[in-house]
Design a protein around this nucleic acid. Structure first.
Length: 561
DNA sequence: CTGGGGATGGGGCCC
DNA sequence: AGGGCCCCATCCCCA
């Protein structure tokens, strides 16, 4: 792996965030380092302020305002949330620490309400999604919005009261809380309210009752929203929800990670407010991170540069687990199953499960006996098109994949790779004469001519010159004739690489031009033989460059010996 | 060690 | 946008 341009190497630890959250959850369960206790109707839930601030807009506002005043760290050791049912609060806490929402279906509405009140938007969206509701369908009339807003204010008030009973600095903090609270409607969409907010120090604001069960308006809202909740709304697993024995698990597909992965240099436009607004949106719900335009464009540009002509599919997305950019609409859920291990497609015949239905379909051919790829030259039939392609190379005798070290040719690229990873190649290579008397003609067709072509200096000249010839000359004037078969191209590549390696960078003033010359030839082949596929010029050049570097290194070592 | 078949995962195209 | 279908690269396993 080569370091980046700035010499920095980023080593990802994909499990770190999972482990971090897991440890935090263990600490919560053990009551370790808990600096905040949530209470609901007598039940107490020790937790961590930072975690709650990370997952809940409500707590972020609460603590953020407090810390913004330079007094951060101390307050709100107990927060009474009687408006949130204990079970729902428990479920939301569990979600905060595990990224998995585990609730009985019957408790969905309580959780939805709790999520709305606490500003856990992704959970609220998930609950609505599962209940088959939209924010509008849930009845966001002005009256209900007002009711919800009042409820939100009440829990904020509850917190202040609780804190006030414990802290001397309540007055100042109430002001701060009040000032953040003004923004809460914007930050917490469900609580958006046309009602004007009281001023931070408003007496009327303070005069609200401290704690009480949900207001009649809330009950009305609750019941109203409960009317259209029905089991039909249970979504398919692909959307992230699974129903297990009445317990519905909403898997936050960024497992155990509460935030989208950072894409630091690329979304510098994202303000903290943007971050807040993005918190819990659909993309997060799906565990995906929609790649910022700049990233998307980069990915497209990079891919276009590598592949050349093919149009890239739209909306590349970054896997929140492995950070990989997944191209193609709708492909991220498919990719995510490689992390979750979920295999929703089961063979009805043998019970084997697959992550993809197209793989299941291919698998079914084993049961049906269908082998849709027959060899035109023999009776062989194959399950996969690529198997047929491999097989056809046996008939043609083509061995286009040649080891640049020992010149052994293979019909399959993966076999060449395996060969090169093994030791046999190096062993053969050490026996290869460094300078041979023959000036092997660039043998044809059978791929065996390579073993005789050894005068490396002459080869290097030939390869070197040909690599720099323009296309027209290559097409017409090449020593190999007007047409180059894939094997020929490979052979020339091999010659060139070998020559380059032998000469070493000391003797080739412009190795990059040399490689570009190889790329031209590769590009020519790609246009004619393998559009956008295996031998895309840029990727090939990269690989050759790697090979050349290895070769040079090895040659240097040998020469020093 | 090699040849061959099969499995897996990503990307492109299309609907 | 999501999914089906296909091609491709890569890996694994077995003879």
């Amino acid at each position: 792996m080569s370091p980046g341009e700035d010499g920095l190497i980023g080593i990802p630890f994909p499990e770190h965030s999972n482990e971090l959250l897991s440890h935090l959850n263990n600490q919560r369960r053990a009551g370790l380092l808990c600096d905040l206790t949530l209470t609901s109707r007598g039940a107490r839930y020790p937790t961590h302020r930072s975690v709650m601030a990370a997952v809940s807009l409500y707590f972020r506002q609460l603590f953020g305002a407090e810390e913004g005043g330079g007094e951060g760290g101390g307050g709100f050791s107990v927060c009474q949330l009687d408006c949130v049912a204990p079970d729902a609060l428990d479920a939301l806490l569990e979600f905060a620490y595990t990224a998995t929402l585990t609730i009985p279906s019957s408790g969905m509405r309580d959780v939805l309400r709790g999520a709305q009140l606490l500003g856990i938007q992704c959970v609220a969206d998930a609950c609505r999604d599962i209940l088959g509701e939209t924010a509008e369908a849930e009845g966001e009339t002005a009256e209900e919005q007002r009711a919800q807003h009042i409820a939100t204010e009440r829990i904020a008030q509850e917190s202040r009261i609780m804190k006030g009973s414990r802290r001397k600095t309540d007055k100042l903090r109430v002001k701060k809380v009040g000032s953040h609270h003004i923004n809460s409607s914007a930050l917490n969409p469900p609580s958006a309210s046309p009602v004007s907010h009281p001023s931070p120090a408003s007496d009327s604001f303070r005069s609200l009752p401290s704690t009480q069960p949900p207001s009649p308006e809330q009950d009305e809202l609750h019941h109203k929203s409960g009317q259209n909740g029905d089991p039909k709304a249970i979504r398919e697993p692909g959307r992230g929800a699974t129903l297990n024995g009445g317990l519905l698990h909403w898997l936050h597909e960024r497992p155990r990670i509460a935030h989208p992965p950072p894409v630091p240099p690329l979304n510098d436009k994202l303000s903290e407010d943007d971050d807040l607004e993005g918190f819990g949106d659909d993309s997060m719900l799906m565990g995906s991170t929609s790649i910022p335009t700049s990233v998307a464009n980069q990915g497209v540009a990079a891919s276009a540069g590598a592949g050349g002509r093919k149009r890239k599919s739209q909306t590349p997305q970054q896997c929140p687990v492995c950070q990989k950019i997944i191209h193609g609409a709708g492909k991220l859920p498919r990719h995510m199953r490689t992390h979750t291990g979920e295999k929703p497609f089961q063979c009805s015949a043998c019970g084997v499960r697959f992550t993809r239905n197209d793989k299941l379909k291919i698998h079914m051919r084993k049961h049906t006996g269908e082998r849709p790829y027959p060899c035109p030259h023999c009776s062989a039939r194959f399950l996969h098109s690529y198997d047929l392609k491999n097989h056809l190379s046996l008939h043609s005798g083509a061995r286009p994949f040649e080891c640049p070290l020992c010149h052994k040719a293979f019909a399959r690229e993966d076999h060449l790779q395996r060969h090169r990873k093994g030791h046999s190649c190096l062993e053969l290579r050490t026996r290869r004469p460094r300078r041979g008397p023959e000036h092997g003609e660039d043998g044809r067709g059978d791929g065996s001519g390579m073993e005789q072509s050894n005068p490396l200096e002459a080869m290097s000249l030939q390869a070197h010159s040909s690599a720099f010839l323009p296309h027209a000359l290559l097409d017409v004037g090449s020593a190999t004739g007007p047409l180059m078969y894939p094997a020929d191209v490979e052979r020339e590549r091999s010659l060139a690489l070998q020559a380059f390696a032998h000469l070493g960078s000391r003797r080739l003033a412009y190795p990059e031009l040399f490689l570009r010359g190889l790329e031209l030839r590769g590009g020519r082949e790609a246009e004619g033989e393998d559009p956008g596929g295996t031998h895309s010029p840029a990727s090939q050049r990269d690989r050759w460059a790697d090979e050349v570097e290895e070769e040079i290194g090895e040659e240097d070592v040998e020469e020093e010996e």
